[in-house]
Design a protein around this nucleic acid. Structure first.
Length: 768
DNA sequence: GAATGGTGTAGGTGA
DNA sequence: TACACCATTC
């Protein structure tokens, strides 16, 4: 053992060390949030190589996200001071894809098969429905059905329709969808896994080859495996394979994608000699944050059971902010971030976590207005943009002209005079002959029988694709991409700015060329174009915004899993949004939402804010909202309210201490305009828990930072009760101050515009 | 065949 | 709000 690895392993705590050095066939590591899960996995791999003398090519490590795979690879490299050759680290999808590329013949695929993403998939289904004259079935519902069946390992022929007409219908669509994919050499995400699992089942010799090769299989985020992934693992693991699974049932958040937490229990049952190791010491968060997370997750019934602990201090209370609406919420968060940065803290250690991507908008606007750099993960990804997908479709046709999905996308993009009528002829012909659209097109052009105008338009398209294919032969990838973007007329088309976004789209197309020039094909077996297209499908592109820079991180709770930040804002924590409306009706889904909240809370190392808005605009409609039940599930002693609607901070549960505060809390209902007048706890819980029974603590007058604000002095000679004039809002009376120095904020009750908090420096108030 | 405007609708997470 | 889809017009 090298000294450094030995020392590294000595530094682990006993259960971590036990996991890393566990002998025997199977181990299940139940690893709580922040308990050093990735550390265990990477040390385990280093230990296998250095101590157990395993060859790197005997090790397979599977993760769920590309980000996790990249991190694991990097950390193994650091531990071993080199990048081990032959070690397989990747996502389930990435590894399945690699297998299918290597064994396309055995898998019954054409060598040039292309990957269908969910958008392609829906378009294909839409086409199938149109063929059937079905305009009532929703493509999304069909896609969901097919994907769910694939997640369960079922093909169309396996489906037991039990005489139910709708199920029969869906099964029929699945059959047609399978046929269409088969014809075009197209493989969707689920198919990657399904087919590679069938490879194990139908090609035992091949399976045995990999069983002999991969003596060690390690699985990350095991709680998120679905039926098919689990079957795939069980098939690959032979009697001599050592299977090392790491997971946390409390962080299972992909049920909607078929994940089965039950697989953890199943694993224990099916491998009787499995060694179960629990990692419960948390090294990440303060005691307060952990207690809050523990209390929240205790409301779930279906748990393996574990309790995180930490020997770190309790730290600050969790701050709760009730915003008036989503703009106020964003403004509050961004102000907090400004203060954090002003105090010399890195912005890159701040994350804003939300339930859904659409929520990023208000925060982006505020951050942009205040010129704070930020980075948004997820959402509209680079490879999902319309113009990029167009360009990729041309490239897909170059790689495989039978790819009907790509054909349909660009046959008339940019418009070249090929309309519905002409396309319908093609489609019909294709249906009748079982050929691809491209094959039919070639045949029709040769045989004549097309109206002159259509023939020349189609001829132009065929010529273009032919030229792209010829030009691409042996050319560097970048030249192929340039050619597809330019010769297709795509760039010129978008440059004409058909929708007011032309400039950005042209930039994106240039960026695609740039991406191609930087692309490194790591699989020598694969031609660069196919490798690039697969990369585009499997890794949806990097986050938007400035990479590497010290930026605030914006992402969904789902993409935050596995990450940690010194300061976290958990925003939009409202009933109907988080937990989402539909999940409220189903206990299992509600529990998954709660696990998502648990994931969010446990991302924070030092400081956690939870915010919600009392009024939120959804689908262009403003609706009242109320605090999420998850807030109520956090013990009140861990929460401190921040400046609830113009009053001072107070510990949650404390009664307002009269004076100006009282009015703000009295009264019921919400959505009544102006700053709200409702206690943050909903009626149903008032008087239930002991939160309200505790003796009321005196309201603490403090800013969010715990620094007592100075009163009027230092605030430009203004004081409470003074009449002032504002450029936009007119005349008003100062009712409160908060903060000090450049962060001083002042509350003014305006005659015509209600009560507002203003940054003193910015507001330009003059005595009236 | 292409462009434009109006209408209706909306679940949200991701490889 | 934002986008997809349809009907109308050029």
């Amino acid at each position: 053992m090298s000294m450094s690895l030995e020392r590294q392993i000595e530094r682990l705590n006993p259960p971590q060390r036990e996991a890393v050095t566990a002998p025997g066939q199977t181990a299940l590591v139940v690893a709580g949030a922040g308990s050093g899960k990735t550390r265990v996995l990477t040390h385990r791999i280093a230990w296998l190589i250095e101590v157990e003398r395993a060859a790197p090519q005997e090790i397979l490590a599977v993760t769920f996200t590309n980000k996790a795979a990249a991190e694991m690879r990097e950390r193994i490299g650091e531990l071993l001071h080199m990048s081990p050759r032959g070690l397989w680290v990747g996502t389930f999808h990435g590894i399945a894809h690699r297998l299918l590329r290597a064994h396309w013949r055995e898998a019954g695929l054409p060598e040039t098969f292309q990957i269908l993403d969910s958008d392609d998939q829906q378009r294909l289904i839409k086409r199938l429905l149109r063929e059937l004259g079905d305009d009532t079935t929703k493509p999304a519902a069909v896609a969901a059905f097919i994907n769910a069946r694939k997640d369960e390992g079922q093909r169309a022929r396996h489906i037991d329709t039990q005489g139910f007409a709708d199920r029969e219908r869906l099964a029929e669509l699945y059959r047609r969808y399978e046929a269409a994919c088969e014809r075009g050499g197209m493989v969707d995400f689920g198919e990657l896994l399904l087919r590679s699992n069938e490879l194990w089942v139908q090609q035992p010799a091949l399976r045995d080859h990999y069983r002999r090769r991969f003596r060690h299989i390690l699985v990350d985020e095991f709680q998120d495996t679905n039926t098919l992934q689990y079957a795939w693992l069980r098939n690959l693991a032979g009697p001599d394979t050592s299977l090392f699974a790491v997971g946390d049932d409390d962080q299972s958040i992909y049920g909607w994608r078929g994940a089965r937490v039950e697989n953890m229990r199943e694993f224990e049952r099916q491998f009787p000699d499995v060694k179960v190791i629990r990692l419960e010491q948390n090294y990440r968060s303060t005691g307060t944050i952990l207690s809050a997370a523990n209390a929240l997750i205790a409301n779930n019934r279906e748990r393996l059971g574990k309790n995180l602990w930490s020997d770190a201090g309790s730290g600050e209370p969790i701050r709760l902010y009730a915003a008036y609406n989503e703009q106020d919420e964003a403004r509050f968060v961004v102000e907090q971030i400004e203060a954090w940065a002003a105090a010399g803290n890195p912005r890159g250690e701040v994350a804003i976590l939300y339930r859904s991507n659409a929520q990023s908008r208000a925060f982006e606007e505020q951050l942009m207005a205040r010129r704070i750099r930020y980075r948004v993960y997820g959402g509209q990804r680079f490879f999902d943009r319309a113009e990029i997908r167009d360009a990729l479709a041309y490239l897909r046709l170059v790689a495989n002209p039978n790819d009907d999905t790509a054909f349909e996308r660009v046959v008339n993009q940019p418009p070249r005079g090929i309309g519905d009528k002409t396309l319908e002829t093609l489609r019909e012909e294709a249906r009748a002959s079982g050929l691809s659209l491209w094959a039919v097109l070639t045949r029709l052009l040769e045989g004549g029988g097309l109206p002159g105008r259509a023939a020349s338009a189609l001829g132009g398209f065929a010529k273009l694709i032919g030229e792209l294919r010829a030009a691409g032969n042996g050319q560097p990838l970048m030249d192929q991409v340039t050619c597809a973007v330019e010769a297709s007329g795509l760039k010129a088309h978008y440059a004409k700015d058909p929708d007011g976004r032309g400039e950005g789209r042209v930039e994106n197309l240039d960026e695609l060329v740039n991406a191609a020039s930087l692309f490194v094909n790591e699989d020598a077996e694969l031609d660069p174009l196919t490798a690039f297209l697969s990369h585009a499908a499997l890794e949806a592109g990097d986050a938007q915004g400035e990479a590497g820079a010290d930026c605030v991180q914006l992402m969904t709770l789902h993409s935050a899993k596995g990450l940690e930040f010194r300061q976290v804002f958990l925003v939009g924590v409202e009933e109907g949004l988080f937990p989402s409306q539909r999940s409220v009706e189903e206990p299992a889904r509600l529990e998954e939402e709660r696990r998502l909240a648990y994931v969010g809370i446990t991302r924070a190392r030092e400081r956690l804010f939870i915010t919600y808005a009392e009024s939120r605009r959804i689908h262009g409609e403003t609706r009242p909202a109320m605090a999420s039940r998850f807030i109520e599930e956090i013990p009140a002693e861990h929460l401190t309210e921040v400046r609830l609607r113009g009053t001072v901070d107070r510990p949650v549960g404390a009664r307002p201490a009269g004076g100006a505060g009282r009015g703000a809390y009295s009264g019921g209902g919400f959505g009544g305009g102006g700053y709200g007048n409702r206690d943050w706890r909903s009626e149903r819980n008032a008087g239930r828990g002991n939160d309200f029974a505790r003796p009321a603590a005196p309201p603490r007058r403090e800013s969010a930072w715990g620094t007592p604000p100075k009163a009027a002095e230092g605030a430009g000679g203004l004081e409470v009760g003074q009449r002032v004039r504002h450029g936009k809002f007119g005349e008003g009376v100062i009712t409160d101050f908060e903060g000090q120095g450049p962060r001083t904020r002042v509350q003014v009750k305006f005659a015509g515009a209600g009560s507002k908090w203003l940054m003193l420096d910015m507001a330009g108030l003059t005595p009236a």
